[in-house]
């Protein structure tokens, strides 16, 4: 059984602005409820495709993205809803994409595993494990060449870190001091494979040594800890000091994909990790530190609920993708007039 760290220090909200903390609470909850809504939809009606829930991992997406500027870039994975929501992708459009509607983020051409929103720096969920890592490094190279001051974040899993793409990307990013942050979301599993069964060295952050970049391990279920570590990494990146590998220790509460039963792990393991739920922990800290009231949190929770109802209604009322809709997207047929 994989246990959470033995002592879980209370969330330290010292020095963080109340508005920021409430925004993080809202974003995490929005990500959670988006996927809970989807889970329910998949159970109760025919939905196209599949989906992977990041339940219990929301603090990684929200903590890291809270340390970014709106113009910064991220790349994501098959488990990407929370990254999108953290980056501000509208949930109406995300939900419509799940329903294969024309109003979806990708006009119904991408689906859950290929969400993107270029207007918000969300360069893509890449469903080939590890593929988004060098692409984030490319965005960082681009920011460097164009002196845009932007940084890029590659989100990826404990499974993805074993891909050659990670090694190649990490080496080049450090070699060239590119403004990128490698965020390894260690949720203990790559489908059925535990980190112990797939990585010779289980301290994944320690791999950073091989590239000469800082490797930081952080409690991935503490949004404030993730945020603080990300802030340091972002500052390093933006000031030209190069990349950081941030390993966020978390846990995949749900099955790998919708309805996957996770028979390979004991139920009590899941129950133990549920006690470290990042949303509940932040909620408790907010109350204990008297930064908010039950009433205020309840109003945030109501707002999230309402947004979900609206997102589903929006998706339901949107036009279906038509059979020929894909045609304009195969290649772009107008030559670009360069200046």
């Amino acid at each position: 059984m994989i246990s959470p760290p033995e002592t879980i220090p209370p969330i330290d909200i010292g020095g963080l602005h109340r508005d920021l903390l409430l925004e993080m609470y809202y974003r995490m909850l929005l990500a959670r409820e988006f996927e809970e809504k989807l889970y329910y939809l998949f159970l109760t009606r025919p939905m196209p495709g599949t989906m992977h829930q990041a339940t219990g991992q929301e603090a990684v997406a929200v903590g890291v993205v809270s340390a970014l500027q709106p113009g910064d870039y991220i790349t994501s994975t098959h488990r990407g809803h929370a990254h999108c929501i953290a980056k501000g992708v509208p949930v109406n459009e995300m939900m419509a994409e799940m329903f294969a509607k024309r109003t979806g983020s990708c006009h119904g051409m991408g689906g859950s595993m290929h969400l993107c929103d270029f207007s918000r720096g969300m360069l893509g969920a890449f469903a080939i494990v590890g593929a988004g890592i060098p692409i984030a490094v490319g965005a960082a190279l681009s920011a460097y060449v164009q002196r845009s001051g932007k940084v890029a974040v590659a989100f990826f899993g404990d499974g993805a870190i074993n891909k050659g793409a990670f090694h190649e990307a990490a080496n080049m990013a450090t070699l060239w001091k590119l403004p990128v942050i490698f965020v390894c979301e260690n949720n203990q599993y790559a489908l059925s494979m535990t980190v112990e069964r797939s990585s010779a060295v289980t301290n994944l952050a320690s791999r950073a040594v091989a590239y000469g970049m800082p490797g930081i391990q952080v409690d991935g279920n503490d949004v404030t800890a993730v945020y603080r570590s990300a802030l340091n990494a972002v500052e390093r990146a933006r000031s030209g000091q190069g990349p950081t590998l941030l390993e966020c220790i978390t846990y995949r509460i749900r099955g790998h994909a919708r309805f996957e039963s996770s028979h390979y792990r004991p139920a009590e393991e899941v129950e133990t990790w549920k006690k470290t739920d990042p949303i509940q922990r932040l909620r408790q800290a907010l109350i204990e530190n008297q930064l908010t009231s039950e009433a205020e949190l309840a109003s945030i929770e109501d707002r999230v609920e309402e947004e979900m109802e609206q997102a589903v209604a929006f998706a339901e009322q949107s036009e279906d993708v038509q059979p020929d809709d894909y045609l304009p997207y195969i290649t772009m047929e107008i030559n670009h007039a360069t200046t």
Binding site: L123, P134, G138, L141, A152, A165, A169, W176
Partner: peptide, 26 residues
């Protein structure tokens, strides 16, 4: 060197980097 990048022997890596660069204005 900011326009001509000598890469290590990392075909998958530099191909991905080129894609990321193409998606963001280069």
């Amino acid at each position: 060197p900011e326009r001509v990048w000598d890469t290590p022997i990392s075909e998958e890596g530099f191909m991905g980097i080129a894609i990321g660069a193409a998606l963001t204005g280069l």
